[in-house]
Design a protein around this nucleic acid. Sequence first.
DNA 1: CGTTCATTTCAATAAACGTTGAGATATTGA
DNA 2: TCAATATCTCAACGTTTATTGAAATGAACG
Lengths: 127, 127
Amino acid sequence: MTMQEDKALDAFGALSQETRLRMVRALVQAGPEGLAAGAVGEAVGASSSAASFHLSHLERAGLVQSRREARSIIYSARYSTLSALVEFLMHDCCQGHPEICTPAIQSLSACCATADARSASAPVIEG
Amino acid sequence: MTMQEDKALDAFGALSQETRLRMVRALVQAGPEGLAAGAVGEAVGASSSAASFHLSHLERAGLVQSRREARSIIYSARYSTLSALVEFLMHDCCQGHPEICTPAIQSLSACCATADARSASAPVIEG
DNA sequence: CGTTCATTTCAATAAACGTTGAGATATTGA
DNA sequence: TCAATATCTCAACGTTTATTGAAATGAACG
């Protein structure tokens, strides 16, 4: 479950570049269905060549994954890596002061609040 | 509450370097009391010059803060920035699929589990 | 089977980054 | 004040990284 240091470095390195950070956020927000490479590039204002370079970089870092669908290559976020990254960074964060990291937990929980309310007991696969 | 893109880029850039990533983790684990610059450098295997350079970098990025204490400069993690960074990255992560980001929430919660149990109702300041 | 569309690869230039060691600054105690 | 300790600053070097545009790949459809 816990990530290795070198994987975390690759991931943070990948996230430390404007185009790639935007790409990851666009894909995080796009959900599991993902976006075609061209759409990602357009969403973040990158040339097709730059988009390909940065998406490959993100895939090598394990932050996104790709699948072919007809003519397009569809990229989507790897939420498990993002989650592992958070865990790696905050590992043993409390040291007897749980109030230190609960704000981080709440920030993350807040993002799910509306979705949770919408789909608390119903299956969500549709469309 | 939400972080700006350029701040997030600075933070991820700071975390994308082995020495600095180790430093942040050492300081996260050290808790609010922090560690002297020399101790941080020693903990991560950096020369004093390199330690100073990287700690300054981390401070500029908002990930750590410093205070003087006698001859030493004590560095400590800025948990609020780490929390904001997580929020920035995962913003709008669910899109109707809350099961996507709950693992991340649980990862983060797990880190506080023992501390929570230990100090659920008692104040924690001691020695 | 050849054309089109989407994406990737390549090579060159330019910019950013980390490391090093020497020297500067600031604090403490004799 | 002087010496010792802790940390920071600076500049030069070598390495890594991003960008660009042109060319190549690879799948799909008539």
